[in-house]
Amino acid sequence: MLRGLYSAASGLTSQQRRHDTITNNIANIETAGFKQNTTPLRSFNEMLLSMTGVDSNQPKTIGTWTGNVFAEESLTYHLQGDLTQTNNRYDFAIISNIAVDGLIFDQSGKAVTDNGEVVYQPQAYFTVQNEQGERRYTRGGQFSVNSEGFLTTSTGDYVLGTNDEPIVLPAGVSIEDLTLTNDRRLVTSAGTDTGIQLLISRIDNPHGLVREGDGSYRLEEGAAAAITEDDAVEVRQGYIEQSNVDITQASVDLMAALRAYEANQKVIQFYDTTLQKTANDIGRIS
């Protein structure tokens, strides 16, 4: 059978995946702390084709062929989003630019060491605890205080403090009276320390995080640790981190995915015509 027909079909599926990912990015332009995704496409493993039907002792090779394509993974770009001032004291934003000795990261947060190893820039996250008591990480800092006084995310997950416990505001204290210090402690306007310090986690390889929806990520590979004084991480109150989706890029990618999809469809149609000729016209006595 004509191999290219299946290649074109795999192209259709892959471009559909790409289109889906871009649509999801566009859907989250207004989501604070959202990190955009990309779908890298990958060709199937190379294989060596041989001609059949020739002398079996001396097979005749045709050459290599990497027939099909597939959407390999959904990759998140954990890069800094722009900060917007909201003056809302419930809003917190992380500015993270953690340096690693001897490495210079490029715009996608990647660096290659002298011996060819690829290293990604570590990133900082708010540490939260979901209803099941599991630890999650998020960059969406639009918090609120529930009726029991717990500091929560907008979906109700508890924000953790450096004592690994959910942060609870002292009775009768509103967050309007609290100010975040440079070392991420909440102090009252009178200057008294409430003993609350936000737990910011440093994830060495952000690609080990798996998105769970509602802005939270689960750590699947690699380790997380509380940030230290040496890490270039700053938390600001009264700001939100905008989604890092690049709208221009997204619109261009959307068109590109659509047209690549269409091109694959055309290829299928060409194969269809070829097959029609083979099936109906070859050997016809007219």
């Binding site: 999801n24 995704n37 798996v210």
Partner: peptide, 8 residues
């Protein structure tokens, strides 16, 4: 795993 979100 291929991770897919469903909008906002």
């Amino acid at each position: 795993g291929f991770n897919q979100g469903w909008g906002s």
